[in-house]
Computed example of a mutant assay.
Amino acid sequence: MIQGKTVLAIVPARGGSKGIPRKNIREVAGKPLIAWTIEEAKKSRYIDRLILSSDDDEIIEVAKAWGCEVPFKRPIELAQDDTPGIAPVLHALEFLPRYDYVILLQPTSPLRQADDIDSCLEKCLAADAKACVSVTEVTENPYWMYTLEKDGAMRQLIQTNDFFYRRQDLPQVYKLNGAIYVANYEWLLQSKSFLSQDTLAYVIPWERSIDIDTEKDLQYLNYEYFPKNSKT
């Protein structure tokens, strides 16, 4: 609870994953990928209830073993490749009591910390915003990107009269890192999205923003961050 407001956190983890088979329970430094998110969420000072939304029996058992509540099993039709990310959240809200704030924590962001979760929520409340999501600064700035015409002519991706010759002069640009999504409960039900023109950004450093989407991402995480646990 924060400032008298109740907080629900949802960890979505479907069984199917084409990029990395059984991704959510693959081992990272000796424990399942999903366990990293569960552990940090349980350290939060504000989360009143932490639940898993999954269609997969094995993921459900793993989550329970790491202390995450599983109040229902997600319908298979909401666990497809083309299922919108908001769908499991809205489905969960149908089954649970009303909370003041909802937090979505994707297990593919294992390095986000409890302090990140709490700070993102604090920022949302301090500004009386409807939503706040985590972002990280991009390493490849789009102000240095171009499209090519058929004749090979270069066209700026972002049209501007300015030319930036030094990296230090580039405008700072950020991208969603998928780690934390916070929203007011009632607003989320109406908007059906964490993102709007009024959504605030909470910046997380790139070293805590790795998003596990491919086998290479998983290998990078293990070898760069946990070399002693990596198998050669």
Rank of each mutant, 00 (worst) to 15 (best):
139 T>A: 13
232 T>M: 13
144 W>N: 14
113 Q>A: 07
103 I>E: 01
192 K>F: 04
15 G>D: 09
164 F>I: 04
39 E>N: 06
23 K>F: 07
201 A>H: 14
182 V>P: 00
33 L>E: 01
5 K>H: 14
93 L>H: 05
228 K>I: 11
68 C>Y: 01
20 I>A: 09
139 T>Y: 05
20 I>P: 02
226 F>P: 00
46 Y>M: 11
219 Q>N: 11
201 A>D: 11
161 N>W: 10
114 A>F: 10
170 L>A: 12
193 S>T: 15
39 E>V: 08
61 E>Q: 13
161 N>C: 04
90 L>Q: 00
20 I>T: 01
167 R>A: 13
163 F>A: 13
205 P>K: 04
111 L>D: 02
160 T>Y: 05
223 Y>M: 02
137 E>T: 04
65 A>H: 06
204 I>F: 12
115 D>C: 07
28 V>I: 00
63 A>F: 01
207 E>H: 14
199 T>G: 06
138 V>G: 05
110 P>L: 08
6 T>N: 10
31 K>W: 03
171 P>G: 12
169 D>K: 01
138 V>H: 03
179 A>I: 07
93 L>K: 11
144 W>Y: 06
57 D>T: 06
110 P>V: 12
41 A>H: 09
140 E>H: 12
200 L>T: 07
205 P>M: 04
113 Q>H: 08
40 E>K: 11
163 F>N: 14
106 Q>N: 15
168 Q>E: 14
114 A>N: 12
170 L>Y: 03
144 W>P: 00
225 Y>T: 02
133 V>A: 01
160 T>W: 03
54 S>R: 07
202 Y>H: 14
219 Q>Y: 04
15 G>F: 09
25 I>Q: 07
140 E>S: 13
228 K>L: 09
101 Y>S: 04
133 V>R: 09
156 Q>A: 13
135 V>G: 10
51 I>F: 05
49 R>H: 09
199 T>N: 01
155 R>P: 00
156 Q>P: 09
47 I>T: 04
169 D>H: 06
191 S>G: 06
56 D>T: 06
79 A>V: 11
12 P>E: 05
111 L>A: 08
173 V>E: 07
129 A>H: 08
112 R>M: 11
156 Q>D: 10
16 G>F: 15
87 A>V: 15
43 K>W: 06
220 Y>N: 12
8 L>E: 09
111 L>Y: 02
112 R>T: 15
220 Y>S: 06
210 I>V: 15
195 L>I: 15
142 P>L: 04
99 Y>S: 01
23 K>T: 08
200 L>F: 11
13 A>P: 05
175 K>E: 15
169 D>P: 00
50 L>K: 01
165 Y>T: 14
142 P>M: 09
44 S>K: 10
37 T>Y: 07
187 W>M: 05
171 P>C: 03
80 Q>Y: 02
179 A>P: 13
137 E>S: 08
